[in-house]
Amino acid sequence: MLDKGSMRPARIINCTKISETLYHVEIELLKELPFKPRSPQFVMIWIPGLESIPMSIAGCKENLIELVVKPVGRTTLSLVNAKQGETIGVKGPLGKALKLDGSGKYLLVAGGSGLAPIKMLHEELESKKIEHTIVFGGRSASEIGDISGLLRGTCSRIYISSDDGSIGFKGSAVELALRLLEAETYTKVVACGPKPMLKYLAKGIARFRDVETWVILENMVKCGLGVCGSCEIDGSGLLVCRDGPGFLLEEVVEWLEVK
């Protein structure tokens, strides 16, 4: 019997460029997943002939899974340049799902390919009719592209920021998120993006004591099943692949170097 640790055959069925740096990739699984994935769970995507890499699940409907890919290396480049119908392998869903409260108001903050688990979380919150705000930031309008087309819903507002001010709020996604926290009441913040962004968030959010903050980490994941230790958060014994990739900010704040 196949389980989450098994390699499942899958086909790339669509790849759309959504901004200068991001691609939306849709994958059809030829054998169904053992359970429905939830944010911020991830899969290991194996490109035969190359290696396998961890990718957050950005959406899932029956046998289709969606990814948001930022091509940076050989394997991610090959993923976005793959021919339609190309066969790959998928291992997962891996990691832990976030527990969602039925009430409250969420602030979701994403930078770059950190959009993937935030998009998935947005869809879960929409299906539960939980009010939430999404902040997505990039360097400029070209990095933002057409992301709002991916984030449709009735319980959410979307705010955009750009470092150069070419679209939306001029500044970072974190600056915008902190302003929103000053102006409105949120019960939970969930953020995903590059480490410097999360570090900046950790510093800025310290003064909002009543807000529960979760950060979704990206780290080098190799086995994906909590064996090899490659993704350990320095010295903590916490494994991104098994204990995460979502962590309460308090658990990882030292690693983000803010203390």
């Binding site: 019997m1 196949l2 390699m7 290991m44 392998g89 291992k91 190799k222 994906g224 099943l225 090899c228």
Partner: peptide
């Protein structure tokens, strides 16, 4: 080694090639 380094098998076991990392 580079991944894949660990895969669950349909027979219930695992195959690994962590490579003495």
């Amino acid at each position: 080694n580079n991944p894949p380094i660990l895969v669950k098998l349909p027979c219930g076991g695992y195959i690994n090639a962590v490579g003495l990392e």
